[in-house]
Structures are given as C-alpha cells and as structure tokens.
Design a protein around this nucleic acid. Structure first.
Lengths: 224, 224
DNA sequence: ACAAAAGTGTTATGTGTACACCCATGG
DNA sequence: CCATGGGTGTACACATAACACTTTTGT
C-alpha cells in the first residue's frame, strides 16, 4: 500500500447483516440468532458481524450466515440491498452495516446454536420478535425488497427444490406477498413466461397428484 | 463509548460518491470533477470523499458535492443506491464507498473549480469520459436506478423549476430514458396521475406558448 | 403568410382480474 | 363414494401504443 489515506478519513467498523428467508408451512420465515455477546445480550438479531481483512462483502455475509447458525446450506440467492450507517445505530461506535438479502430452501436447513450465538431459529418474517439494534428496520426493508424482486426476477424458484409443483410455487408467492392469489391467473401468468418446463413426473399425496415442473434451461437468475 | 469492538473487526475507509444528474439542452448530464490528488490525478471522477467523524452518510454526500464543485444548489433528491466494496477498487487500501444518486435542476448550478479538484463540469451521462476507480460502473448503475425511479416516483419534476411546461417535462423523460415518447400518450398519462395543476400562466418564445404547470399540493416525493 | 411549437381523440391491442366447475387420486 | 387438492376458460375493465391534423403565437 504505497498511498496513504487523507487525515480526515473516518475509520469505521464495517459489518454485514443478513436477512435470510425461507418458506415453511406456507409462511415466510426469517433466520434469527440470539446474541451471546454485549450489546443486546440475549436479544434476537439478524445474523451478521464484522467484515474481515481481505474479505469481500458477500463472502462475509456467507461466512456469518454459516458461523452463526451452523447451517448446512447453499444460499440460492444473495444480494446486497441497503447500507445502514446512522450514527447512533450501534453503541460501540460508528459501525456501518451493509445489509444483505438471502434466499434458502427450507428443507436443506438444519439450525443449531453456534459458538457465537445462544440459539438460532426461524421466525415468521411478517411478525418477528423484538430485535437488536435497527434490525427490525432492516428486516422490514428486506421483505419489501423481496416482494419487489419477486415481480421481475424469478426469485420465487430459489425457495424451492429443483422440481416443484405449481401450487407449491403459488404458495411461495402468497407467503412473500402475504396475500392470496387466484389459482388460474397465477398459472396463466407463470406458464406464459416460459420459464417452466414440465418434468414429466407427478408428485403423489392426498388428492389429485400435481404436475412437476423445473426451470427451463438457461433461466438461472444469477446467485450473487 | 463503553463497549469495544471485537479484535477481528476490520477498520476500513468509509467514503461516499455522488452521481449527480441534471438536464441540459435536452440531454441527461452528470456532474464530474477532475481529481487534484493521487491516485488518478487529473482523471475525471464522481464527486465524493471520506465520511467525517460524526457525520451521517447523506450529509457527507451533500458536503462533498458542495466542496468539490463549488455548486450553489439544493439537490432536489438524494438517495443512497448501492455500496461498492470490492477489495481492489482503490489502491490506497480497503475503502468502501456508499454511492448516492442526486438530482439537480440545471439552472441553479454554477460549476467552478474548487480547492480539492482541478475542474468540475457537466458531461453527457450516457457518454462520459474515462473515469477513475470503478466510477464508470457506479455511474452506469446510477443511470439504471434513475430510469427505474422515474416510473413510480415523480422524480422527473425534481429536474425542473417550480413551474414548467409539459413539453419540458416530456424532455426530461426522454433525456433519462434516452428514447422518444409519444406526445399525446405522455400528456394523457401524466395528467391522469393528477399530480400536476395548471398554474394559469403561459411561457412565451418561438411558436405557440405552452401552458405552465406546477406540482399539485401534497405531492412532494421526499428529499432524502 | 409562414415557421415553429403546442395541443388534441380514436382505435386496436394487450394485460390484469374476477369468477365456478370438473378431474384424479387415496382412503 | 367421498374427501382432498389439482386443473381448466371466459368476460370485462383498464392500460398501453399507434397514429395526423389543427391551433396559437412571433416574425
């Protein structure tokens, strides 16, 4: 490093926080951890922490997600969505947090308490418990962003396994938008987009089996 | 400050950059400065710099805009839109920049060289000169964000004086979207939104004078 | 009178939304 | 045969896009 920073440059703590979502029992859930350290000891919060030296922002987000929740997962989507830097937001000093939005398929997640956290668990995203710092605001904005993304990215598919039924996909939309959708209009719209191809097989259970679909070739949204 | 940061916390330089836009001669222009310091001496760049201690992010953006361009202005709109933190983006070390998008009315702007910059000037936003750091990427994303915002915020009004004609407003849309719009459909759509009220007066010049409008009461978008 | 820019309506097309019944399977 | 959930089509309202001529003013 041959050039130095100007004297008035602020050195601040750089953190990432992750609002990670999955669908469970037809409802949108967010992954929260119970803090094992001050400040806000024993308060629920978004997974997150300080960025390490030489670590990219999205790498830090993935690491915090893994370390704090002992999750075995590959996030299907990870995206920075806003940076929170208000002066009083952290009592330890000036800490700027780059907030990320992550999407996980619920099935692949096994949550257990990690070293730096007391617990980790899924909570209904639309009705979370009291959260540390400004994390309630961050979570709220993450949900809004998720709803917006749903419209023109095919982000809903990231919540599901490789093959899925149309009712399952509709359930994802309804969980995220927090309202009911018309079955026929939903199918019409989704099939018209041409991003789904029938996978031939059918899933069985109670009632009539549903046609299975998978994403059409060349329609990945881009993970990071 | 009673609590200390954990040892692995990275201290990084926190900067803001501002992509400031105005309409001039029917084209979208961006405000650039020519750097008076290393690195990238004598290269054009977005106005920006380090955040001071105890300074909010948006305050830093406003200060840099004023100091580096000696502009006399009140930005009509200022909005954070993305944070750039890739490791190699600045040769001085790990510097994270919170990028902002600003809208100025062109008429109120007087650009002259400031102390920390060699020059400051407006450039066509869709065809800028070579830029320092990753500022070309930042500018490109700022334009995209501006185009998106145009749709559902009434951001176009921020480019104009308090009263304006419909052809002027259409010119703003065309400059930002970089394509022509149909006059009749444009008028129909804008007037249907009910955010414009005729201000009675008419502006004179060559050709038939145009009706003047101003924004309807209670339709401010929110500056910050 | 002419040049220059403002203003004005209709039609076709596409998109979103509301709405009710039959189908296939398991128990 | 019944309970459960999957699958299907049509009609209306609304928004969008294409398109050409007349009006008002200054010179």
């Amino acid at each position: 490093m041959t050039l130095s920073l100007p004297p008035q440059a602020t050195q601040v703590g750089l953190a990432v926080d992750v609002a990670a979502f999955a669908i469970h029992e037809g409802k949108l859930h967010a992954l929260l951890i119970e803090r094992a350290t001050l400040p806000h000891l024993q308060t629920w919060a978004l997974p997150g922490g300080f960025v390490h030296v030489g670590e990219e922002l999205h790498e830090a987000a993935l690491r915090e997600l893994r370390d704090e929740t002992s999750i075995e997962l590959e996030p299907r989507h990870l995206e920075q969505f806003y940076t929170f830097g208000a002066i009083g937001r952290d009592p330890r000093g000036r800490i700027v947090s780059v907030a990320h939005l992550a999407v996980l398929p619920y099935g692949t997640v096994h949550v257990m308490g990690g070293a730096t956290t007391l617990h980790a668990d899924w909570f209904p995203a639309h009705a979370p418990p009291p959260l540390a710092f400004d994390h309630a605001v961050i979570l709220g904005r993450a949900i809004k962003r998720l709803q917006l993304r749903l419209e023109y990215a095919n982000l809903a598919l990231e919540f599901l396994a490789e093959t899925f039924t149309l009712p399952e996909l509709q359930g994802v939309y309804e969980a995220i938008l927090d309202r009911a959708l018309d079955k026929r209009n939903f199918r019409k719209r989704l099939l018209a987009q041409g991003i789904l191809t029938p996978s031939g097989e059918r899933r069985s259970g109670v009632g009539r089996p549903a046609q299975l679909y998978k994403r059409a070739k060349g329609t990945r949204t881009g993970l990071l």
